[in-house]
Amino acid sequence: MDLIVENFFNLKVLAETAPYLVRGFLVMIELCLIVIPVGLIGGTIVAVLGSYGIPWLRWLLVVYVDLFRSLPPLVLLVFVYQGLPMMGVDIPALGAVVLSFLLNTSAYYGEIIRAGIESIPRGQQEAARSTGMTRIQTLAYIVLPQAIRNVVPDLISNTLEVIKLTSIASVVALPELLRMARLAQGSTYNPTPLIAAAAIYLAVCWPIVRFLSRFERRMTAKA
């Protein structure tokens, strides 16, 4: 028991390494604020292009989505981070993370938003078009607002995954929470910072998990 307290809940070590953890936490938040909007925009573009009804484009996007659903995000990240410099493109760790997250998350968000667009009856688009709205206007004012509302739980669930996924940025030495916790562990030779990092992830993600569970229960109760 003493061994556990000494190594996992050591207050002295925690106080000493708290500044590292705070910095890591801030970088993690920053990262989320970049990759989530970028992924959502990318996903919307993928979904909208896919619903245009052009067969070859639709086919191309299915290939795109399945390709990035099949590649582990970490493989993609390492590939971008190590590969681009070989082509003479110098990319900082943050750039590699954002680019690989864009490719990965736009595929997942795209699939979700596409399902939302397909849930809107075609008649609405035809009605909107016949009142003189352009294609873009129909999409922006009629289809997308309803489509996105229909898939909010899935979007939140995927966003939870994206937040958790930011931890892999530690592999390319981006100083986010997990990376800073590991550095702190290395310098104090005590794993308390790792436990503290886990507690921070839990504090951020648990409310989302709870919300999703309650939402699901409400949906089942309705059905």
């Binding site: 931890s167 794993p191 790792l194 436990i195 990092a197 886990a198 992830y201 839990l202 993600c205 648990w206």
Partner: peptide, 12 residues
């Protein structure tokens, strides 16, 4: 285990 990133659990 739904809230924690698997990489964090693995490293711990």
């Amino acid at each position: 285990f739904r809230a924690l990133p698997p990489l964090v659990v693995l490293i711990i």
